[in-house]
């Protein structure tokens, strides 16, 4: 799908210091009934964000107006569970372009990269520093520099580098996706298929 190119993102961040945030929390299954990909942001973290009667839960971070920004900072093992890409869509649709954690579940990480969200894995120590910086100042900005593969807490100047493979980095910085790549090699795939025994 088409998404905005990702190069350098400078933004305040929303802290969610909970471990094992699974995709059922990010978007509960009962909201997966759409046949289009827009609008999932309304139900992002639905059951943590709203009471049963649809009134906002005041103690949840997305309902706290002092926190905002295009970066979501989550606890260890973010995005575990179901393969629903809807979880990544919900995060993107809400307005986030980057998720920072000390560890990501595989499928969520892949889904994010495929739709233009950058998952940034940092050390547990650096993650704590980010949480501390946001606690000290909810407007504290982070700079995520994809070309340099570096994340910086601007208030303190502390930074850490992060990994991403060259292919995905090239895609994200140019707004390309895998389907463009695969369509261009269909001849090669056809030859491969002809040799399959099943």
């Amino acid at each position: 799908m088409a998404y905005d190119k990702f190069t350098i993102l400078k933004s305040s961040a929303v802290p969610l210091p909970i471990e094992n945030v699974d995709t059922d929390q990010i978007i509960p299954a009962r909201f997966l009934k759409a046949t289009k990909r827009e609008g999932f942001g309304d139900n992002l973290f639905r059951d943590w964000r709203y009471n049963g009667d649809d009134t906002p839960k005041q103690d949840f971070v997305l309902n706290n107006p002092i926190y905002s920004g295009k970066i979501l900072v989550g606890g260890h093992n973010f995005g575990s569970g179901s393969s629903r890409e809807h979880a990544a869509w919900a995060i993107y649709d809400y307005g986030f372009r980057c998720v920072v954690s000390s560890f990501f579940a595989d499928i969520f990480k892949g889904n994010s990269l495929n739709i233009g969200i950058l998952p940034v894995q940092v050390s547990p120590e650096f993650l704590n520093k980010i949480f501390e910086a946001i606690e000290a100042d909810p407007n504290a900005e982070l700079e995520v520099n994809l070309p340099e593969q570096k994340i910086t807490i601007l208030a303190t100047g502390e930074s850490e580098s992060f990994d991403i493979n060259g292919y995905k980095k090239h895609n994200l910085t140019n707004g390309f996706d895998d389907i463009d790549y695969l369509q261009a090699m269909k001849g090669e795939i056809k030859e491969f298929e002809a040799e399959r025994i099943f």
């Binding site: 393969s83 809807h86 892949g110 495929n114 739709i115 895998d178 389907i179």
Partner: peptide, 21 residues
């Protein structure tokens, strides 16, 4: 398991892009 972008890849090219675990 795969995400929906990958479902589209498989439908359109019978391939996905995966780093080997």
């Amino acid at each position: 398991g795969i995400g929906t972008s990958e479902v589209e890849m498989v439908l359109s090219s019978q391939c996905i892009m995966q780093p080997k675990p």
